[in-house]
Design a protein around this nucleic acid. Sequence first.
DNA 1: CTGTTAGCGCATTCAG
DNA 2: CTGAATGCGCTAACAG
Lengths: 354, 354
Amino acid sequence: MEDKSSRRRSRNPSDRPTGRRSTIKDVAKEARVSAGTVSRVTSNNPTVQPHIRARVAAAVAKLGYRPSAAAQSMRTAATKLIGCIVSDFSNPLYSAILRSAEPVLADEGYTLIIASSDDRLDREIALFETFARRRVDGVIAVLSDEKDPALLQTIQSAGFPVLLMERDAHFHAHVIATDHAGGMRQAVEYLISLGHERIALVTGSTQTRSGRDRAAGYRAAFSAAGMPVDEALLRCESLTTAFAFDETQRLFALAKPPTAMIAGGNLMLAGVLRALKILGQTIPEDVSVISSGETELAELASPSISVVRWDLAAFGRQAAALMLGRMREPEQPPRRIVVPCELALRKSCASPRR
Amino acid sequence: MEDKSSRRRSRNPSDRPTGRRSTIKDVAKEARVSAGTVSRVTSNNPTVQPHIRARVAAAVAKLGYRPSAAAQSMRTAATKLIGCIVSDFSNPLYSAILRSAEPVLADEGYTLIIASSDDRLDREIALFETFARRRVDGVIAVLSDEKDPALLQTIQSAGFPVLLMERDAHFHAHVIATDHAGGMRQAVEYLISLGHERIALVTGSTQTRSGRDRAAGYRAAFSAAGMPVDEALLRCESLTTAFAFDETQRLFALAKPPTAMIAGGNLMLAGVLRALKILGQTIPEDVSVISSGETELAELASPSISVVRWDLAAFGRQAAALMLGRMREPEQPPRRIVVPCELALRKSCASPRR
DNA sequence: CTGTTAGCGCATTCAG
DNA sequence: CTGAATGCGCTAACAG
């Protein structure tokens, strides 16, 4: 025989009509107040009598009521969603930055939507479209192309504030970037001070700010030393491990190979080391190596690799702060933040052999 | 004198009343059809005359109309949002898995919300609450505690399908996990075959499936060899680099230190190597080392480190497929997928010294 | 095949 | 301080 009470409705906390979530009306009925009052309670509007508030809270708990974010955004025109676009979010550089941006944004009630573009323009455009449909409140992005018209047009028409990382903005947007020029210059000057003249740099395309800045820093160091740049040693095309691997091998096939190598991107050190291993080049006796971006590999390789590094956590936190500022005051003039670099010396550099 | 045409309304594509996004009604008016027809066009309903469809498409383009995802989910009760919870999104293990799950889900129109829990129960509960309010269609999670009642209660009441990674499910959920038991057993058997008896394992807590499985595999290998396990060499507490670093130092402070070490977690190898460096222990002469999880560090360290590895991309893809299956058929019985491991031998192991 | 109708769940007027 | 009424933008059901 069944328990009699089981026949009564609204007793068991989970007996709201199966499959149906409880709505603000259910709560209102349960608490014997109006929907408006429930809304005031859930949004912490202080103009509600304590005893009413308590009754509502009890009903909320009993029914397991959770306001629908969709319905809320519909009314308030804010989604509390931030879109993030990077080429590959499993790149430790980006995951670290977004990871430290996350809590800053979460504290203000924002949730992150994260997507990878594979550095493809069509994917980026599609992502901006998706984010536009989702009415995100803002987007943090690393663009593959700083001024493709179709992309720019999409961004403009999307209608939300954008924060660009490591890129120059060709439209109204805030920017946060690393001082790759300064970092690279330090690295090259150090190598020059050791006596190197043939210094190779493999890094990303100069179509993009980070590649451009690194190349500029490289040239600045040479020019300050009154030395000519051998263009054959500048390989600015891609930030991938594979590119670094290939180019390192090519560089050492040159009639006059480099005596020092700079990996201008966090993924590239692995490619350089792998190639050097195959080539039988010893660090630092045969070749000095500097990498851009701190990694466990750089720290724990033998010998440990000197790096140009910067504070990724601070980068992420500042990115978040910029985004918040921009969302609060959409009309504020574009801001540019540059995160400084330092050169951390380890065991991978020495004077070149005769 | 101004261009006369600028006075006409609805000419410039971006002249919809400033600040207001165009809605389905605007498009309907522009295309001289009803809102319903616009909806049919945007949702690719084939029952629309080609010429009408074209007119609507033109209006959509002209006004830059993008259907509001919020309004859509309000009607359809589907958000096409997948929530992801991991302890730390910047852990390469998780970012790699989610990264390969992403395109599979995106192909079906899903977008990922990614959040880190810092392995804190309260954060996990808060994230499930957030996801519930956002009405995500499903959640992929790595839980810090497999059976905390408050957490389980929250998950149950949240009302969306959950896919657990690397954990056992104490509720109705699909599970995907790595065969850490098998992998660890292979590793230990290999070390035993080299003559090792004192083999240390540092890994995560046995409160959690992955830690439990690794410990079980370790024991299984010893037991198969008819050898006793020295409990002092089993350190199952945390998956962090710091823990690995500390415990390695402690292990070598033992009266009878281990002759082989296994780092049971992808972050741990760095801690072990760092400690070994400080201790002046040489690999593999003084101590053999095996790590769980492929990393660049393992591959490029000197000597290169043997690892237990598995296919992270496949893991991610299968996770996505499981999630999709579960969302399509919410009532389907729980499924368990186990991803196999292999032992990749490199230069970090040798027979112990006398 | 297309227009009309009726909410989805909520926050915000406006009265009282 | 609280209740009732309204509409955010959209899709599905129903007529025509």
